[in-house]
Each structure stands twice: as structure tokens, then as C-alpha cells.
Design a protein around this nucleic acid. Structure first.
Length: 117
DNA sequence: GACATGACGGCAG
DNA sequence: CCTGCCGCCATGT
């Protein structure tokens, strides 16, 4: 289940993102850590770029460690991250998540799995 | 097959 | 406090 990166990195990212509860958000680093490679946060963002812009899954719930919407630029204006998040009750101001630490959803914690690290 | 790049993050200077 | 570099993995040229 917790298979490491074996070409399924995208799949794993997709899987984790899909598990993000509505109205909550997570970070690239958190997902990367959950996948066992906390240092490959870049890959997470890259993975989202592959399928994220298609709006097939809530990529808008994934932000950077600062709670900043770094990827909003890749969303269509009609479905901007801010709007989508706002619909879920998540307040965003100037690309910055409000009350971010309270909305933060850590897969390692919520999924009851802690990497051996 | 090699080099450059990307929605990041942590640490060093 | 701010700037810069390295690491990580997969994709594109």
C-alpha cells in the first residue's frame, strides 16, 4: 500500500490529494513526506502539473509550506484556486491562505501513518 | 543517453 | 533578515 516511488509517484500523489477532506488543505512537502521522500516536494508539484490543470482532482487544496497558492497560475480563471477554496469555506487573500495552520491536513497524521524516516 | 527544468523545502552563508 | 544552493524524481528536448 505504502509503496515508495516506483513510477507510481504520480499515482500516489493523486491518491493522497484525492483523500484531502473538503475544506482542508495540505502541502507539497507533507505529501512528499507521506510518500517517503520528504525532499521530493518538487515532484509533487510536477505530478499535479501533469493532471492537476485538468481539474480532475482537488489540486487547489495543495499549497506550499507557507500556505501560498503558488500554483494558481496554472488554473483557469473560471476555476481559480481562490474561488474553489472559497466555496469550501477556505478564505484566501492575496494568494495567501487565511488560518492556514488550522486548515492544514497532514496525510501522515490523518491517515495514521508515520514514515520511519 | 545527457542536460535542463519544474506548482518545493531545508539549510548554509 | 534575505539570498543562494542542493536534493529529489520524472518529463521534455
Amino acid at each position: 500500500m505504502f509503496r515508495k516511488t516506483s513510477g507510481n509517484f504520480f499515482k500516489d500523489v493523486y491518491e493522497v490529494v484525492a483523500l484531502i477532506p473538503r475544506g482542508r488543505v495540505t502541502t507539497y512537502g507533507a505529501i512528499a513526506q507521506y510518500l517517503g521522500s520528504k525532499q521530493s516536494a518538487r515532484m509533487v508539484g510536477w505530478a499535479l502539473h501533469q493532471e492537476g490543470c485538468k481539474a480532475y482532482y482537488p489540486a487547489h487544496r495543495v499549497v506550499n509550506k507557507q500556505g501560498l497558492l503558488t500554483g494558481k497560475h496554472f488554473f483557469a480563471e473560471t476555476q481559480s484556486m481562490e474561488s474553489l477554496l472559497a466555496l469550501e469555506g477556505v478564505l484566501v487573500q492575496n494568494d495567501q491562505l487565511q488560518n492556514f495552520e488550522n486548515l492544514f491536513w497532514d496525510p501522515c497524521q490523518e491517515l495514521n501513518y508515520w514514515p520511519l524516516d
